[in-house]
């Protein structure tokens, strides 16, 4: 086994561990911290894929912004009286069966499929190519995404605003 494969197994194991902690931990705050572990490991996976810009964006947007937003949400909605409520709902055995079944089907399909692999060429250009693509052929989707972010920001402000009497 080469070094990169060992690193992949380490990062993938951390990601799966964090994801499992996220869905099983009782304390929602701990659950969010486990999610941050998984998101960080996924940033490492992007580095292994030689997508350095994605790794940076992953840390900035997911770990930096979305995880913080979720932690704020948890703290703003935490039950002060500490009502003990179950972590899982009544349909959790069914949910477990559906998830495990989907995983089994996906694993068999993914392992058996013959992917049309390209010749393994080292990535060229990297961030520069990405920037040119965003400003060239993908300029319209790029602008639409910025409008979407603006609309989402305004919408979130209006929805979460304290209703004035």
């Amino acid at each position: 086994m080469s070094l990169t494969q060992a690193v992949f197994i380490l990062l993938g194991g951390m990601a799966v561990l964090g994801a499992l902690g996220m869905v099983t931990l009782r304390n929602l705050f701990h659950s969010a911290l486990a999610m941050i572990l998984a998101l960080f490991s996924i940033a490492g996976i992007y580095v292994l894929l030689e997508a350095e810009f994605l790794a940076v964006v992953q840390v900035l947007v997911y770990v930096g912004a979305i995880a913080m937003l979720i932690l704020f949400g948890i703290m703003l909605t935490r039950d002060i009286v500490g009502r003990a409520s179950a972590v899982r709902n009544r349909q959790w055995p069914l949910a477990l069966a559906v998830s495990a079944g989907l995983l089994a089907v996906l694993a068999v399909a993914l392992v058996r499929a013959a992917w049309p692999l390209a010749t393994y060429a080292p990535a060229q250009g990297g961030v520069a190519d990405l920037g040119l693509a965003l400003m060239g052929p993908y300029a319209l989707p790029f602008e639409v995404a910025s409008v979407l972010l603006l609309v989402a920001m305004v919408g979130a402000l209006i929805i979460a605003r304290e209703a004035r009497e």
Partner: peptide, 16 residues
Amino acid sequence: AVLFCIGLYGVLARRN
């Protein structure tokens, strides 16, 4: 696929 299925379980089974 493993991460997707764990996330799916979280969406389907959590109450919060």
